[in-house]
Amino acid sequence: MFLGTHTPRLDDKGRLTLPAKYRDELAGGLMITKGQDHCLYVFPRDEFEQMARKVAEAPFTDERVRAYQRYLFAGTDEQRPDSQGRIPIAAELRRYAGLGKECTVIGAVNRLEIWDSEAWARYQDEHEAGYAQAQQEVLPGVF
């Protein structure tokens, strides 16, 4: 399970060092893809394959499904962390997410999200007020 917030730096070669606590879970390979809100999603390979099967089962006769499949799969890069836990982030993915040197990696249960640190701060500022409302809608009666 991926939880927490970490602030690694992107090096001059476009590599990001994964937080140590996630390295074992991602050692077998991972998939980096464009996420919503201009961040990157990092899935363990097995998790991505499960999701990909579900996406592939959707009716490709639907234009929206084809567009989603193309966008998702064309923008996915398979990686394996090196001995120091670094992964290269493809130039196109860095551009999509607007990644600078300062990055924020957040755990989102079944995936990691990689954000430019300034973009993550803006996102939090813009969505903080809706957090309480969303909690009531997502988990009614729990809190």
Rank of each mutant, 00 (worst) to 15 (best):
Y68G: 10
Y68F: 13
Y68K: 10
Y68R: 10
Y68T: 12
Y68V: 06
Q69F: 02
Q69G: 02
Q69D: 02
Q69T: 06
Q69H: 07
Q69V: 09
R70P: 08
R70A: 02
R70D: 00
Y71R: 15
Y71P: 12
L72D: 08
L72E: 04
L72C: 13
L72T: 11
F73W: 05
F73M: 12
F73H: 11
F73N: 07
A74T: 03
G75P: 03
G75C: 06
T76Y: 01
T76R: 13
T76S: 15
T76L: 11
T76E: 00
D77Q: 11
D77T: 11
D77H: 09
D77V: 02
D77S: 10
D77K: 05
E78A: 09
Q79L: 07
Q79S: 13
Q79M: 14
Q79T: 06
R80P: 05
R80C: 15
P81W: 00
P81D: 09
D82Y: 05
D82C: 11
S83H: 01
S83A: 00
S83F: 00
Q84Y: 04
Q84C: 04
Q84K: 01
G85I: 01
G85A: 03
G85W: 00
G85N: 00
G85L: 01
R86N: 02
R86Y: 04
R86W: 04
R86K: 03
R86H: 03
I87G: 04
I87E: 05
I87F: 03
I87T: 04
I87M: 06
I87V: 13
P88M: 14
I89G: 10
I89V: 14
I89K: 04
I89E: 13
I89R: 04
A90F: 06
A90W: 04
A90I: 09
A91W: 09
A91M: 13
A91R: 14
E92F: 03
E92T: 04
E92K: 10
E92L: 05
L93S: 12
L93T: 13
L93P: 12
R94T: 07
R94E: 00
R94Y: 03
R94M: 10
R95A: 14
R95L: 14
Y96E: 01
Y96W: 08
Y96K: 09
Y96H: 10
Y96D: 05
Y96V: 06
Y96C: 07
A97V: 06
A97N: 08
A97W: 00
A97S: 02
A97L: 01
A97E: 01
